[in-house]
């Protein structure tokens, strides 16, 4: 195996409030090779964004805490880095782009300034040079360079997101984390932006973690995919394989709930139930209440990670503890 660019080991992140503890991320393991692209998929509240914040060190200071685990980036454990070291990495070696482009840009600064800023933070002392590079970045994302003196409100949503991508990639980071980058955009723009991300990834040789609840988006860009549920990675593997032959009941449920244009269906088939309240830590498998294949053992024994031919899954069926009835549709279809 290649020297991993990013290796998350047993990461547990919690939010501590006066009343309760929110178990956002519960002992996840993730790896990303250099140049790789990983999709992180799950429902809202699964812990995807928290994972991203944990990597970036952007957890809210007072309430967010990494209580366990390591995040190794090029061998360095990010959880142990002092803040000033972390700042050198943010925007420079690891960049992140966020969900809502409409509000992610400072309305009173020009886009050129905002792109140049990240360059200036990370070494480009000369303002002229920084602005020149900012112009280059704008062109790279398909915006004419003389628009760099304009303000965010003069751009449409899709273009704003492109500016944000330009900011993120200006310092040529090794890793780009994109949290729901297209969710707020309309579908046609979505396609443009995704295409651009893909192209830039190749051009700049950037590794990518793409977070989304949308399987289709992830499918367009990522080689590998990790399915996240209630703060746990329940399945991980090469995307094509996972989507064509899911191992975890949740993954199967997700895929089944995608409406198919060629099939005539009166009703969509969602997964029954809801994700558990992250302030509770139930016994056994957290997916049991919604799992069509659940057995008695699932209530008492929490599953471990099982590796199967280059993929991993967290399910008692694949551990051999309960019979493997995958593919049969389960008790309740």
């Amino acid at each position: 195996m290649d020297e991993q660019l990013l290796s998350i080991q047993n990461l547990t992140t919690q939010y501590l409030t006066d009343e309760s503890v929110i178990h956002a991320v519960n002992g996840i393991n993730l790896h990303l090779a250099k140049g790789g692209s990983l999709g992180l998929v799950g429902e809202s509240g699964a812990g995807k964004t928290t994972t991203a914040y944990s990597i970036m060190g952007l957890l809210p200071k007072l309430t967010g805490k990494i209580t366990q685990g390591k995040i190794l980036f090029e061998g360095k454990d990010l959880t142990r880095l002092p803040e000033d070291e972390m700042r050198k990495i943010r925007g420079n070696e690891i960049s992140m782009i966020f969900q809502d482009p409409m509000t992610s840009l400072n309305p009173i600064l020009t886009v050129g300034d905002q792109i140049a800023e990240v360059l200036e933070i990370h070494g480009t002392a000369d303002t002229h040079a920084a602005l020149a590079k900012a112009g280059d970045m704008l062109e790279m994302v398909g915006i004419p360079r003389d628009r760099m003196h304009e303000y965010p409100h003069q751009f449409s949503g899709g273009m704003k997101q492109r500016v944000i991508i330009a900011i993120a990639l200006a310092c040529n980071p090794k890793l780009l984390i994109a949290d729901e980058p297209t969710t707020a955009l309309d579908v046609t723009i979505q396609a443009q932006v995704l295409r651009m991300i893909r192209d830039l990834k190749v051009k700049l040789d950037t590794s990518l973690i793409l977070i989304s609840h949308n399987l289709g988006v992830v499918a367009q860009v990522c080689e590998n995919v990790a399915i996240m549920y209630a703060g746990r990675i329940v399945e991980y593997g090469p995307l094509r394989e996972v989507f064509s032959r899911p191992l975890h009941p949740y993954t199967e449920g997700l895929l089944n709930s995608i409406p198919r244009i060629e099939v005539d269906k009166d009703r969509l088939s969602p997964i029954r139930g809801m994700m558990p309240d992250p302030s509770t830590m139930p016994h056994g498998c957290i997916f049991k209440p919604r799992c069509p294949y659940a057995a008695a053992a699932c209530g008492t024994r929490a599953p471990h990670i099982t590796e199967i031919s280059g993929r991993s899954v967290m399910c008692l069926m694949h551990e051999g503890v309960i019979p493997n009835t995958m593919g049969t549709g389960g008790h309740h279809a």
Binding site: G91, N106, H122
Partner: peptide, 8 residues
């Protein structure tokens, strides 16, 4: 958040 993510 964006500004912080830049490493500022």
């Amino acid at each position: 958040r964006t500004a912080r993510a830049k490493g500022l």
